[in-house]
Design a protein around this nucleic acid. Structure first.
Lengths: 151, 151
DNA sequence: ATAAGTGCAAAGCATTTGCACTGAT
DNA sequence: ATCAGTGCAAATGCTTTGCACTTAT
């Protein structure tokens, strides 16, 4: 299945990164990576820590913090900031790119991909003599009706 | 000129807001608003404070902080967060909307408006049964050539 | 008079770091 | 043996707030 192969890709990419940069394999990092891989969601450091501590109660916040930074550096995780000042971490899916639509009512995060917008961004940048190295596109909204949302 | 009339619009909108919500006019607020209006730029609270203190050395950080929050509430200022965790404030221009392209090399902030993207966002939201209440679109990039940029 | 505003300093809070100890290679 | 990793607690950095005093209405 696709999910399985992305997990494989992440593990391999990370292993390669760690080999190249001389990082060591530790029990803590293994657990953190496992927890992160198991949840295809947007998690705060605290949520990650809580889940890690189920297996390894002694792991500290700083270790999760540093490990997630490493995953971002290795290119297998992304750090996001939606409205709040708390960082959220999400898995990178090989070769994919997506942006986010956040429901104001329940906090649900939708993901979307749009070629048209991506292309348009490049044109805009070019019109200023620039090329894009990164971007951030977040939509905030609410359900069209006004019942409670079922996201 | 157009800039003059936007200043008028801001002053009137703000006066109306203050009247309606029972806020008082103070010397501090006048100076802060003047400083903010004079600079059509993206300013941190500290930068605003520095400029305010040229005229009114006793004004404190908290007053600038609270005044800018009020301006945002009144709809005449916007608070932005580009990359750093420091808030930047910018003037609202009546009836206008724009997004930003930030130069990684020199920090210059370009502003752009794109109907096509705006429309596309609505379509995307609609495809999830949502309507947009707000959005955030930031492009980060660098000059096409590799000389130093002259922004 | 009275309710809002101000300035200061302290509190919040998420993030980041210094350091002595532990553990992987 | 060596050097990276860990856990803790303390330090940051920006933002926010409590409080006693001041000022606009």
């Amino acid at each position: 299945m696709a999910e399985q192969s992305n997990t494989e890709w992440i593990r391999e990419t990370l292993a390669e990164f760690m080999r190249t940069t001389g990082k060591k394999n530790t029990r803590q990092r293994e657990v953190i990576v496992d927890v992160f891989l198991e949840s295809d969601d947007h998690l705060t450091l605290q949520e990650l820590l809580d889940r890690v501590q189920v297996t390894e109660p002694n792991v500290g916040f700083a270790t999760v913090y540093r490990t997630m930074k490493m995953l971002v550096e290795a290119g297998v995780a992304k750090e996001r900031h939606f409205g709040t000042d708390q960082a959220l971490y999400e898995l990178v899916h090989q070769g994919e790119h997506h942006d986010h639509l956040i429901c104001n009512r329940c906090g649900h995060i939708f993901e979307y991909e749009d070629e048209l917008i991506e292309a348009r961004q490049e044109e805009i940048a070019a019109s200023f003599g620039m090329k894009i190295t990164g971007h951030r596109h977040e939509l905030y909204g609410e359900p069209v009706g006004d019942g409670p949302c079922n996201h």
